[in-house]
Amino acid sequence: MHPLIFREVLSVTMILFAIIDILGAIPVIIQLRQKAGHIQSEKASIAVLVLMIGFLFVGEEMLAIIGLDVSSFAIAGSLVIFIIAMEMILGVNFFKEDMPESVSIVPLAFPLIAGAGTMTTLLSLKTQYQTQNIIVGIVLNTLFVYLVLKNVQWIEKLLGKTGLAILRKAFGIILLAIAIKLFRSNTHL
């Protein structure tokens, strides 16, 4: 087994942090909490952890069943990440999603936190980083997701609307760079 490499863990953690965009999702989480009255942060966090680690290990096999390789999926994912980044930077919604009437694992853990962009990113990361470093990054992000879900009201008051908007745009630019890097590293021209 390979040793944990701090630089890889840090890179993976930052990439997943940007794509999960839990801070950018705070307005949506607040809206969900207002509709449902309560967010089950423990249940949602465990679901996120299981989804991400599960997809990390069986995602490639699932792709193989439908005849796709990881590079093709990574390129497609880089385009999705690019669009998500443009949404964050420009403040425009390309992906329209209906708001659910109640908060459960389905709307919160998937697709809001561990959605298609996150799953694509996990497979893309697998082409560049060692698996154990990705798992540590997933666990660190899940802990952060849990802390945000547990303290969403306090965070909303602390950052305010302007702070959340600035944070969202900053992570949008980081995601844009990640999308371009993923596209370039998986394109064999």
Rank of each mutant, 00 (worst) to 15 (best):
A170F: 11
L175Q: 14
N133W: 01
I113Y: 00
D98N: 13
K150Q: 09
N141S: 01
G160Q: 05
I135K: 06
N151C: 00
I173A: 14
I180E: 02
S124D: 02
N93A: 12
T120G: 15
T118A: 14
G172H: 01
F94M: 10
S185F: 11
I155L: 15
L122W: 02
L108Q: 00
Q128A: 08
L175E: 15
E156N: 15
W154Q: 03
R168D: 06
V136E: 03
A165E: 10
G117A: 14
N151A: 01
I113F: 07
I180M: 13
V152G: 05
A109L: 01
L90N: 11
G115S: 03
K157A: 11
L125W: 03
E101Q: 15
R168L: 08
F94S: 12
L164F: 13
V145L: 04
L159I: 11
L143N: 03
L123K: 02
I113Q: 00
P111Y: 04
D98Q: 14
Q132M: 12
K181D: 14
L122Y: 05
I178E: 04
G137W: 03
K126N: 12
E87P: 05
E87T: 10
S104W: 06
P107M: 00
A177M: 10
L140I: 10
K181W: 12
K126E: 10
L125A: 09
I180A: 14
I89T: 10
L147C: 08
E87N: 12
L140F: 14
F144M: 13
L149E: 02
G160F: 00
E101R: 14
A109R: 01
I166Y: 07
A109E: 01
I166C: 11
I178P: 02
